[in-house]
């Protein structure tokens, strides 16, 4: 019944191999097969953004990608954002601006922010809200998140400049 497929991928710079059924989403593979539970499941149909990861340089909702599709591809997940024990400037900015409460949406927001700032290091508030529209947060009301993203951009720029 369940034929499994061998998948070879690079996650956060490391070679990872796993076996999965073709019907399993990348989200399921990350959490249940590989055991990387930083990526969260919210709606499981592409609306909430809790499961956002970066696939070949593009943000995607991992619930709408099949595990088998990432064979030979490169992924960044929330686990790859910090440098060991040292938090990424985006993570620091989210903490300093209290841009999270329950935290379930936070990995998705941080990944989406990383991807935004990789594409556009100096986004306007409008661009930030547009880019993050596919990430839902039911706690913060978004203003704190937007401020954290603006702060992240400043921190990253300062780091690059200094």
């Amino acid at each position: 019944m369940s034929k499994k497929v061998h998948v070879q991928t690079i996650i956060n710079g490391e070679d990872v191999e796993f076996l999965c059924e073709p019907r399993q989403s990348l989200l399921e593979c990350l959490r249940d097969v590989i055991g990387m539970t930083g990526t969260k499941e919210g709606c499981n149909d592409g609306n909430c953004g809790a499961c956002t990861v970066i696939l070949e340089g593009r943000t995607v909702t991992s619930c709408l990608v099949l595990g088998v599709e990432v064979d030979g591809k490169e992924l960044t997940t929330i686990e790859g954002i910090a440098d060991g024990e040292k938090l990424h400037p985006i993570q620091t900015a989210f903490l300093e601006n209290a841009a999270l409460q329950c935290g379930i949406c936070t990995p998705g927001f941080i990944i989406a922010t990383k991807s935004l700032l990789d594409h556009n290091p100096d986004p306007s508030e409008y661009e930030i809200r547009w880019w993050l529209a596919n990430n839902l947060c039911r706690c913060t009301g978004y203003d704190k998140i937007v401020r954290a993203v603006q702060e992240s951009a400043k921190k990253i720029k300062a780091q690059a400049g200094g």
Binding site: G46, T59, V60, T61, A112, W131
Partner: peptide, 9 residues
């Protein structure tokens, strides 16, 4: 159509 992650796919 959708948001940025949807447009990526």
């Amino acid at each position: 159509i959708g948001g940025i992650p949807i447009q990526g796919r």
